[in-house]
């Protein structure tokens, strides 16, 4: 199974076929994590650098485990303990790391477009592990994987994404992927946290949570960044929790089978009630488990893509010069 793209920058523009390939590949990788010896040699000899310019526990550990279970060598870099704090540019940091012959770079950055910037500069594969308010494609894929595991497919399914849509990369990646796969997507949240013209992405906006979740098959609850309140985008955490927090009372307005998701980390009692987070509708820990399988699939397929590209360029080099065996 090969992939012809070199980077994973986002789910926007990705075809249903490509999305399905990621999800199918993840399915075959999920089983590896259930084994007593959780390791395959798929990426042996490949070096991956995890560049995290923003705090992250879940995503960073998930990528690291995915890399280790594929036998890749990985190094971690986080902005606080690096030269970035001394004022080095992103470009210099990335080029220095690549100069040490790193094959893949996983980047989490607060600036939208930072992975695209690196992809334009570097030879290696770039995986977007979350850029600003733009995309978080592996989160989108793992959410879709979790849904597909339950449903088998997306047609006729309704997913509600509730929270701070304006600042959410998780929302965007989910929207791109789910709309492409044929699901109905409704976004819900305060008007002050709703980005302009979001409808043009193929979603419906409903500010009333009770109405939004009617007949929903899944509710994906976004983390509320508490600093948004300080910027005056909503009056108080209490009011937010009362109007847009997901609790069992609100969930009475939807299907019995409707599941609840959260990308983490949760603010229990704010966007999600304690008993919902731990309740029987919750698939939140399952998402985390699936995250490792999805990231294994992404790394594996991108490496396949890069290998294919290298092979092609090797072939054309070989064709040009008949002499000379390459030094191993």
């Amino acid at each position: 199974m090969t992939n012809t793209t070199k980077h994973l920058l986002g789910l926007e523009g990705m075809s249903a076929e490509e999305l399905t390939r990621y999800l199918d590949t993840a399915e075959s990788f999920k089983e590896i994590s259930e084994r007593p010896v959780k390791k395959v040699p798929a990426l042996r000899g490949i070096t991956v650098a995890n560049l995290f310019f923003e705090n992250s526990t879940r995503t960073r550990i998930s990528f690291e485990l995915a890399e280790k279970r594929l036998s890749a060598d990985s190094v971690n870099f986080s902005a606080s303990g690096s030269s970035v704090s001394k004022g080095e540019t992103l470009r210099d940091t990335a080029e220095n790391i690549e100069a040490m012959k790193v094959d893949m770079i996983v980047i989490r950055h607060g600036a939208s477009g930072a992975p695209h910037f690196l992809a334009s500069l570097l030879d290696g594969s770039v995986v977007n592990a979350g850029d600003g308010a733009h995309e978080h494609p592996t989160q989108g894929l793992l959410d879709m994987f979790t849904l597909r595991e339950r449903w088998g497919g997306f047609a006729g399914r309704k997913v509600v994404i509730v929270g701070d849509i304006a600042h959410s990369r998780v929302a965007r990646s989910n929207i791109y992927g789910l709309v492409t796969m044929g699901a109905e997507v409704v976004v819900c949240g305060p008007p002050t946290l709703m980005p302009p013209d979001i409808e043009r992405l193929g979603v419906r906006v409903e500010t009333n949570l009770r109405k939004a979740i009617e007949a929903a098959d899944a509710v994906n609850v976004l983390r509320l960044q508490l600093e948004r309140q300080k910027k005056g985008l909503f009056p108080s955490v209490d009011e937010y929790a009362r109007v847009w927090g997901l609790n069992n009372e609100v969930l009475k307005n939807t299907k019995k089978e409707c599941i609840v998701m959260h990308p983490g980390p949760m603010n229990r009692g704010v966007e999600i009630a304690h008993d919902v987070a731990d309740g029987e509708r919750s698939v939140i820990l399952g998402q985390v488990t699936n995250g490792v399988a999805v990231r294994m699939a992404v790394l594996y397929l991108l490496r396949g893509g890069a290998a294919l590209e290298a092979e092609e360029s090797q072939q054309s080099t070989d064709a040009k010069s008949r002499e000379g065996k390459q030094v191993a």
Binding site: E12, S112, G113, D131, G132, A133, H134, E135, A166, R169, R172, P195, P196, D197, I198, R200, L201
Partner: peptide
């Protein structure tokens, strides 16, 4: 729309 799309 494009600021929404680009997350900027």
């Amino acid at each position: 729309f494009h600021s929404t799309q680009l997350g900027l």
